[in-house]
Amino acid sequence: MSSDKHAHPARKDLAARVLDRTGVDVARCYQCGKCSAGCPLASEMDFPPSQVMHLLQLAGMGPEYADMALRSHTVWLCLTCEICFCRCPMELDIPAVMDALRHESLRQKKVNPRARSILAFHRAFLDSVRYTGRLFEMGQVVDYKLRSGHFLQDLLQAPWMFLVGKLHLLPERVRDRRALKRIFAGTRQAGEERP
């Protein structure tokens, strides 16, 4: 699916960078809307998937289009359920595009403010994995609450989970901590710094 028509090394627009990173050529999208029709959260999104693709198509027209895509709530609402990719007549891997846009949005510090809690959850999750190698659900939830400010949400679930043996008070740990350290050090996560 590679194409050299965006091969301007000096100033690549967002569509070209997406092509480089995902192999998805947004020019192939003919705006049929099938992705938006099937997306479980399309009605929650500011730009349903087909419109995000259209914003990328227009990226060469001016920086405001790429900006709209990167600042969209959509990229964070995308659940990666893969239904759009599954049904896309052009076989465009839209979930991969969403991943690439999320990464770029973080890098450019353009995360939509409404996505705060979603991002906080992801970061809490990765923090837990960073320090123990595995997800420590208890620790993650505490971390998430600190990051998101949603202190009371879900508080009622914890005692029940503890009671049925689903919540551990101490984390499980990976023995080879250095391996984990190397992986996290080697992948420069755009999401590391706190919002």
């Binding site: 705006q31 809307g33 099938k34 938006s36 399309a42 009605s43 349903p48």
Partner: peptide, 10 residues
């Protein structure tokens, strides 16, 4: 379906 003329609204 979706209406692509209405913001791709489902």
């Amino acid at each position: 379906g979706a209406d692509t003329l209405l913001g791709a609204r489902p």
